[in-house]
Measured scan of single mutants.
Amino acid sequence: ITFYEDRAFQGRSYETTTDCPNLQPYFSRCNSIRVESGCWMLYERPNYQGQQYLLRRGEYPDYQQWMGLSDSIRSC
């Protein structure tokens, strides 16, 4: 899974293949995501807390595409 700070896969990015309890050191906001394979559970707060979103393989050019309430993703 790759997270992008800006919409349409622009700006600083961070890629991971494992669970991350705290994504804050890698980016300040998340406006687009690419899921290369599988399913990922994302959380608005660190340590798997807050609103959660299940994303399947695909491209999400805007946080509203995954029904996000904000551009805050802090763990996965």
Rank of each mutant, 00 (worst) to 15 (best):
T2H: 02
T2C: 08
F3G: 00
F3A: 00
Y4Q: 00
Y4A: 00
E5G: 05
D6F: 04
R7M: 02
R7Q: 11
R7Y: 03
A8S: 10
A8Y: 06
A8L: 11
Q10R: 07
Q10D: 11
Q10M: 03
Q10N: 06
G11E: 03
G11D: 02
G11F: 00
S13M: 07
S13W: 11
Y14V: 03
Y14I: 11
E15M: 10
T17D: 05
T18I: 09
T18M: 10
D19F: 08
C20K: 03
C20P: 01
C20S: 15
P21V: 10
N22H: 04
N22M: 05
N22V: 12
N22A: 09
L23V: 11
L23W: 01
Q24F: 05
Q24T: 05
P25L: 12
F27E: 01
F27L: 06
F27P: 00
F27S: 06
S28G: 13
S28R: 08
S28H: 10
S28F: 13
R29Y: 12
R29S: 13
C30W: 02
C30Q: 01
N31T: 08
S32T: 00
S32L: 00
I33Q: 01
V35Q: 01
E36R: 07
E36N: 11
S37L: 03
G38Q: 01
G38S: 11
C39L: 07
C39M: 09
C39F: 09
C39S: 14
C39R: 07
C39P: 14
W40F: 15
W40K: 01
W40M: 02
W40P: 00
M41K: 08
M41T: 13
L42G: 07
Y43T: 03
Y43H: 13
Y43N: 11
Y43A: 04
E44Q: 13
E44M: 15
R45Y: 15
R45M: 11
N47G: 14
N47V: 04
N47S: 05
N47R: 09
N47I: 03
Y48I: 01
Q49Y: 10
Q51I: 14
Q51K: 04
Q52M: 06
Q52L: 10
Y53P: 00
L54D: 05
L54V: 12
L54W: 07
L55V: 08
L55P: 00
L55R: 01
L55H: 00
R56G: 04
R56D: 06
R57W: 05
R57D: 14
R57G: 13
R57T: 15
R57M: 14
G58V: 00
G58S: 09
E59C: 15
E59I: 01
Y60F: 04
P61V: 07
D62C: 04
D62I: 03
D62W: 13
D62L: 07
Y63N: 06
Y63G: 09
Y63M: 05
Q64I: 09
Q65I: 05
Q65W: 05
W66G: 13
W66L: 07
W66A: 13
M67V: 11
G68T: 14
G68M: 11
L69V: 12
L69Q: 14
S70H: 04
D71L: 12
S72M: 12
S72H: 04
S72T: 05
I73Y: 03
R74Y: 15
R74T: 15
R74F: 08
C76Q: 02
C76L: 14
